[in-house]
Design a protein around this nucleic acid. Sequence first.
DNA 1: CCCCCATTAAGTATGACTAATTCGTGTCCG
DNA 2: CGGACACGAATTAGTCATACTTAATGGGGG
Lengths: 243, 243
Amino acid sequence: MTSQGAGRDETPARERGLHARLLASLGPSITAGEYPPGTVLRTEELASRYEVSRTVAREAVRVLESMHLVESRRRVGVTVLPPEEWDVYDPQVITWRLAGTDRGRQLRSLTVLRSAVEPVAARLAAELATPEECAGLTEHALGMVATSRGQQLENYLVHDIAFHRTVLRASRNEMFARLGDVVAAVLAGRTHHDVMFTDPRQEAVTLHVNVAEAVRERDGARAEAAMRTITEDAMAELDVLAP
Amino acid sequence: MTSQGAGRDETPARERGLHARLLASLGPSITAGEYPPGTVLRTEELASRYEVSRTVAREAVRVLESMHLVESRRRVGVTVLPPEEWDVYDPQVITWRLAGTDRGRQLRSLTVLRSAVEPVAARLAAELATPEECAGLTEHALGMVATSRGQQLENYLVHDIAFHRTVLRASRNEMFARLGDVVAAVLAGRTHHDVMFTDPRQEAVTLHVNVAEAVRERDGARAEAAMRTITEDAMAELDVLAP
DNA sequence: CCCCCATTAAGTATGACTAATTCGTGTCCG
DNA sequence: CGGACACGAATTAGTCATACTTAATGGGGG
């Protein structure tokens, strides 16, 4: 009795739920361009290929369709859509693209988005931040200072992420706040994936301190300017690493 | 007899596909706060209430779950999540919220987002726009001038939307480009829903012409400044209409 | 050249079964 | 006597197989 395949898993990440596993396999494949736009998949084929029921395959396709990664039409099948159609703000799609071959382009898009959003968020934060948020900002800025030397990149990253998240949340704009996860992913990617063996630049650290100060002093213009420099540095850094 | 129910209709839009109809009913209900966070739905109950099979109900729930509007857990049911969890960038969610009771807040969030993104997009467009896009920009700006007097609001709107869409596309940033639909929805909402019986302000029209000129002359700073004034005007207008 | 019909794949429905999680109950130990 | 832990029953989502319906598409016949 060779009960084969009972535990052989094709997909590296084992999400819970069969449909989630299928999604975690199909989504990255599509965003990576493994199935070029126009490629037609059939749910029945997917079901047999992944050894799941048609029900499960259909549910995964439904989710992909809601992300505009595919389009399902009768008598035709499930057609892969071109990247222009994709919901590029969907956190799931962003994650998939950051993990795949599209990583560079995705990182560039997100960094430009940051350069637009974060300065404005900083200005709003200066107007609207609660005392607790001001304190948090200062705390994390000082944390960045403390961990900016001596190869403490992981600890530095924690403060960096928390700092930007607090600014975005303090802007009191739900759409800005939602970008916290995205910024976290970008910052984490820079530390973990890209070349960043050296300590952070002291200028960057100082700028974060400046933002915290400006917010505390309700100086919107200064907070915006400092944050703008931070995001411009991030873009410049990206151009140096991958021109 | 135009018996137009203001909220009595269970399935306002006849989407094709049962699951789409269920989604079109559940989604707006949730985003409108009709089911407060923590409310527990059961797929079986949904199936019987909407007279569809569990298969259909499950697919709709899957999509809602992918938007983080609900969370599905065994032995518990389908729990409605708080607004902070929602994928507020999902075009579907945006549409639902703009159509429901959350309209004001949603419009405000989106206008702030515009004020961050569009100026930066205008600067990038000045650097990267193709000759065709420059021509399109000029054409639509002139179209706005031509339709800015004499109660031609609908025609004006068409040019306004096309103008902003072109700027966002010309920025060569996929995430900016994706906001074209959102901006279109905001502009259309301003014309159709809000009080806007009077002709557009001539200053606004001139500013659009300025942006087009600046982009054509590759003057990023001027394009950004003009667009920033446009979006600031939009925010001011919102404050006047709904303080 | 157009219309009709056969084909195909998605969409829907149903029933049976699995699995995970919660909650209540009962027992054992302190 | 009381609390903590463990076990089991109940509940609900998850999975599967199958049969049937619907709508496009493409080809064949008039």
